[in-house]
């Protein structure tokens, strides 16, 4: 699967003061822990472990995620918008790569 594609969806017809539900998905394998002889295989597993959303540069939502979040992580979260602006969402995986998506919220 092509890793690191970010899709963001916000509702249409947003008005000032609305609490907007943002939906975001990033394609990522979220590598699962492997067990051998009843013990976890020691290695650096590749999974998204951080996510942060900023609105007009201000952090509005963050996540610390583990391997127990599903492949192709999906989140929906609320943002109260008082002015139009840019929503930026960034993911970082445990191999240090980051993936960003952004969208404009217009009134």
């Amino acid at each position: 699967m092509a890793t690191g594609q970010v899709r963001i969806r916000v509702p249409d017809g947003v008005k000032a003061g609305d609490v907007v539900t943002v939906r975001v998905l990033v394609t990522h394998p979220m590598e699962v822990l492997r067990m051998e002889g009843g013990k976890p295989v020691e290695k650096n597993y590749n999974f998204i472990h951080r996510m942060a959303a900023t609105y007009n540069g201000k952090t509005v939502f963050e996540a610390e995620t583990t391997q127990a979040v599903s492949q192709n992580p999906f989140f929906s979260f609320p943002v109260k918008v008082t002015e139009p602006g840019k929503l930026q969402i960034q993911f970082e995986d445990t191999e240090g790569r980051s993936y960003t998506g952004e969208t404009d919220i217009k009134f």
Partner: peptide
């Protein structure tokens, strides 16, 4: 059919 829900949509669009 929502690309923020079903990653297969995103991959197919590629």
């Amino acid at each position: 059919l929502d690309p923020t829900n079903n990653a297969a949509v995103v991959l197919a669009e590629g």
